[in-house]
Design a protein around this nucleic acid. Structure first.
Lengths: 206, 206
DNA sequence: TTATAAATACCGACCATCGGTTTGTAAATG
DNA sequence: CATTTACAAACCGATGGTCGGTATTTATAA
């Protein structure tokens, strides 16, 4: 099966190169000519693999989002989760990457704009968000089972708050606002306080 | 000064029409031909007023953001602020508008993407965010002065939290996720709890 | 006030490049 | 050996942007 193998190889080349270019030049400025030049493929070849520029970009987005979700799920599964550090660290580490434009969010952004033109893109991004919430919830439920988080906490609510705040932090970082009042530390403290309502106000043990 | 007057009139026509078209068709699908057709202006005329499509879009964004900030500041100044309802209502009302694409965020989105191509756009959005935080802070400080919010609250921190969460809510709404666990009500409760750390856990009075 | 020079508001033909289509061909497959 | 697959390249309309031109104000000076 040499043909099938080659197909996959070319497809990966196409996707990887496009992602590279998007991160380098931004979505709007990445043209088919750029992609042709760097991959060495002809326009005909590209259209043999995807139905157009839009679909190509959606495929890149899809792959990247899946990758991101997987790494978040891994962070939740890691042992450090017992001390709440896993997911928190995942967020902390993603922020600098955002600032240097080396993250998914640029892709998300693109499809937020384009969602009227590209309805499928909206669904992909929404699914990504829901998946992230589900992972957060899993983290909380696990914590409750192991007794680290009191069972009185509403897991759904806490998971959404967690995701909402981390989403907000990412966005804020993306638009280049450097906060003085509310950063990862405060985020962490707030989540702790929310997850342990029996402890009053103060800073967490972490 | 008839010429100056005409200049302003044409400029407004250009800006208003462009905004209209962006809200109708989205950023990427709004072409210069569309704008020419609806304004009745020639291409030459448009380029006499702006240096290109990008600058035109930035100008629209700038005007819209300023408008939004002003209305938020008005909400903070309104009498209802004494019961915390002003800013909260402003957010609650903006969410449905977002879902029908009739809000600023589409414009913000565009420039989040394009910020590498269009450095000025990034600054505009960041300024918008900072202004919103400042307004939130003003709201909290006013509350502290009138005794509704205890002076022990860190106004900077609380303002950033407020803005971060409302930004996150807007984004979530924009990508089309309908939450069950954390909506305006929970947002409101959390802010209340944060602003009144001496009251434990429960729902607000509102 | 009027003649005229300069600046402004606007037009539309022209251009390179864009995303996308089509026709063609060499290699793999069955 | 017929068919499907992988790729190429010439072509297409539309797009964003440029440029030389014209008509109308405005500024200036006689």
């Amino acid at each position: 099966m040499k043909q099938e193998e080659r197909r996959e190889q070319t497809m990966n080349l196409l996707l990887d190169t496009t992602e590279e270019l998007i991160l380098e030049k931004g979505c709007t400025k990445t043209t088919l000519s750029d992609i042709m030049a760097r991959t060495g493929l002809s326009k005909g070849a590209i259209f043999h693999y995807v139905s157009g520029k839009d679909e190509l970009f959606v495929k890149v987005l899809e792959a990247k989002l899946e990758e991101t979700n997987t790494s978040f799920m891994d962070a939740v599964d890691a042992p450090a989760v017992k001390e709440f550090d896993g997911p928190m660290n995942a967020i902390a580490q993603s922020l600098p990457k955002l600032e240097s434009r080396k993250d998914v969010s640029n892709l998300i952004m693109m499809y937020l704009i384009g969602k009227s033109d590209q309805p499928e893109a909206a669904g992909i991004v929404a699914d990504f968000y829901r998946q992230a919430v589900a992972t957060s919830k899993k983290w909380i439920v696990t914590g409750q089972e192991s007794g680290v988080i009191p069972s009185s906490v509403n897991a759904d609510q806490a998971a959404e708050l967690f995701e909402l705040l981390s989403f907000g932090l990412r966005m804020r970082s993306l638009i280049g606002v450097r906060s003085t009042g509310f950063g990862i530390q405060e985020f962490s403290e707030l989540i702790m306080r929310t997850l342990r309502p029996d402890r009053q106000g103060g800073a967490p043990t972490s």
